Amino acid sequence: MSARLKLTLSYAGFLMVAGVLLLAAVWVFLLRYVPNRAMLTNPDDRPNGVFPIRSVLLGVFAPRAAAVLAFLLLFGLVGGWILAGRMLAPLTRITEATRTATSGSLSHRIRLPGRKDEFRELADAFDTMLARLEAHVAEQQRFAANASHELRTPLAVSKSLIDLARTDPNHDNGQIIERLHAVNTRAIDLTEALLLLTRANQRTFTREPVDLSLVAEEAAETLLPLAEKQGVTIETDGDITPTIGSQALLLQLITNLVQNAIVHNLPEDGTVWVSTEVRPRTVVVTVENTGEILTPQLVSTLTEPFQRGTKRIHADHAGVGLGLAIVKTIVLAHDGRLTLVPRSAGGLRITVELPAAPSALPQR
């Protein structure tokens, strides 16, 4: 049976039960004040001179009660069918939208009118889900196109170098090998970044207690040679910041931030500040750097895959355009929040806020 038929039968059944109870109450009420028998003033009217009041009353009441119940049954069926149809009408629109989305069209929205009830909340939640799903699919399509383009470039360069070596035996093979090595290294870095991005997206990692202050110090020490080579000073400070997550992914997160801050810095005498902070329910890592003045519009696009803010200053650390995209994915995988704000004096301030470990929360 359909939901509409079930509701119709339920309405009709409830109305019938209510009618039976009402008629039973009327009958009981009548019995309280009506005697069972009455003596006739003229005994010639009855053989024994007694008139059975209740029996006569029952004979009159029962057919009319049956007629009332039949009317209630018919009224309940017709009215219940109409009411059930009106109540389930929003579900029909939601079902049609679901079928449209199943066919591949995610641009359709229900936009259910009327007062905000359970059906309106369901429709609004479904519209929100469709909007997010449409944005996610569009982002994945852009990502796939960009990744294909980024991977095609080193492959095309490698093919050109190999063709050059085959057609020109007198060419300097050492130079070709060096260029092939550089191109293949970039392709490998891009592939590893894509795999890391996929792993973070799927959240297939083990969660464990992590102190972000120690992770920040490790990342800064690892990148210290790069900073010295580029003439950038790294300054670290802050509190113990315990959280729960993947040690490897969080190290990759802060390493990407610090490396990005080093590469996108002033040509000389640049500075990178790495600090950690404990808040009531979260822990925060902030990475700031000096550099060129950035607009808020440009900063808002930096976490998209294969987006680069300014031209790379050092070609040997050009990256693959996934550094901040990986950071954003890791932050979301840890239920955190990522904030990018351009500094008025130039450079960028990036704040990562993650849930604090339960042991670090204040006890009541």
Rank of each mutant, 00 (worst) to 15 (best):
F14I: 13
A18S: 15
V20Q: 13
V20G: 10
V20F: 14
L21I: 13
L23N: 03
R32L: 15
V34R: 09
D45L: 14
P47E: 09
V50S: 06
F51Y: 05
F51L: 14
S55K: 08
L58S: 10
V60P: 00
A62P: 01
A66P: 08
G79D: 15
G80I: 00
R86N: 00
I94G: 08
T98R: 12
S105I: 05
I110L: 04
G114N: 04
E121N: 02
E134T: 01
A135K: 13
E139Y: 07
Q140A: 10
Q141D: 15
N146R: 13
R152V: 03
P154G: 03
L155I: 13
S160Y: 15
L164G: 12
D168C: 06
H171C: 12
G174P: 03
I176W: 00
E178V: 00
R179G: 03
L180I: 05
L180A: 00
N184P: 00
L190M: 10
L195H: 12
L196Y: 05
N201P: 11
L223R: 03
P225R: 01
G231Q: 04
I244P: 07
S246W: 05
Q247S: 11
Q247H: 15
Q247I: 01
A248E: 11
I254G: 02
N256V: 13
V263T: 04
H264D: 00
E268V: 08
G270D: 01
V272M: 01
R279A: 14
R281E: 15
R281N: 14
T286W: 06
T290S: 05
I293G: 01
Q297H: 07
V299K: 04
T303E: 15
Q307F: 08
R312Y: 04
L322E: 02
L322A: 06
T329A: 01
R337G: 03
G347N: 04
G347T: 02
R349I: 01
I350N: 12
T351C: 15
V352L: 02
E353I: 06
L354N: 07
A356V: 09
A357G: 09
P358H: 08
L361Q: 07
P362L: 11
